[in-house]
């Protein structure tokens, strides 16, 4: 009952100010914000980005299986991993949150919460509200983010791998893709997530930031709604739901 109440709160929070999209009986949302909310026009400044999303069915039955999730955000050149320690993915497998932190604290780049559902019985699906930590990783020479989720009741520990690609063209600078089905298997199913990414760190004596952004508005403009992020939920066998979000970009001189 407590888990159900908790999940209800999380979902309603997720839906409140978020953009929604639906297709073939699936309703999905995406919300996001950037901190600080005022950014320089010309040079990039360190930022933290918070993204949250939810998935639910509009027809009563559990939503179809999520096979892949793709998240695009930032501007070209906005991601920096130079000198940031890398956490090997194997160190996070079956780890509690404390063990994950003990092993990879220096590679920590984010935190959040996640709600997953195991629809064992249609009327009473098992809900797991897990704490999430995000660590800087590497896969085949490319940056990656290992999202480690851990809950005690019911016991849940898994690693969702996001593979990062820097984009040179288009509206976004970074795309993160996670093969959800390959990583999690048939259960559990993602219902809600909220994650904050960002990290200030020192490397080679220089203070750096994992994420950087600017607000490139013309001189006479002070605020304008611009694309912040886009999510693509790919369900198997269908549908694919894509949600772009725009947020106010506020410039400081």
């Amino acid at each position: 009952m407590a888990a159900t109440l908790l999940s209800g709160t999380a979902l309603s929070v997720g839906l409140a100010g978020a953009e929604q999209s639906g297709r073939d009986g699936v309703e999905a949302t995406l919300d996001g914000s950037i901190t600080p909310d005022r950014l320089p026009r010309r040079h990039a400044a360190p930022v933290f980005i918070t993204l949250s999303g939810s998935i639910q069915s509009s027809v009563g039955s559990p939503p179809p299986r999520l096979s892949r999730i793709e998240l695009a955000f930032g501007a070209p050149g906005g991601l920096s991993t130079k000198g940031l320690p890398v956490c090997p993915r194997r160190l996070l497998r079956n780890a509690t949150q404390r063990q994950a932190l003990d092993r990879c604290r220096s590679a920590l780049i984010g935190h959040g919460t996640i709600l997953t559902e195991v629809p064992l019985a249609r009327s009473r699906p098992l809900l797991a509200h897990a704490a999430v930590l995000a660590f800087n990783g590497e896969a085949r020479g490319h940056p990656a983010v290992w999202v480690h989720a851990y809950a005690t009741a019911p016991p849940v520990s898994f690693v969702l791998p996001f593979y990062l690609h820097r984009l040179r063209a288009g509206g976004f600078g970074v795309v993160m893709r996670a093969p959800v089905y390959r990583a999690l298997g048939r259960w559990p199913r993602l219902r809600f997530f909220r994650v904050t990414l960002g990290r200030r760190y020192r490397a080679d004596g220089v203070l750096r930031s994992y994420l950087n952004a600017r607000c490139p508005l013309p001189p006479r403009f002070h605020s304008l709604s611009l694309p912040l992020a886009r999510i693509r939920y790919e369900f198997a066998p269908s549908p694919t739901v894509s949600i772009p979000i725009l947020r106010a970009c506020r410039a400081v001189d």
């Binding site: 953009e19 929604q20 999209s21 639906g22 297709r23 073939d24 009986g25 309703e27 509009s58 509206g171 709604s225 611009l226 694309p227 886009r230 549908p239 772009p244 725009l246």
Partner: peptide, 27 residues
């Protein structure tokens, strides 16, 4: 943008694609 999102949210369960408001079409 705000009005477009509000309109979308009313009919989210319909699963529109072309009839949905998509800000990306305007920026």
């Amino acid at each position: 943008i705000h009005e477009g999102n509000k309109a979308n949210n009313v009919v989210v369960s319909f699963g529109f694609n072309y009839c949905d408001f998509k800000p990306s079409r305007f920026v």
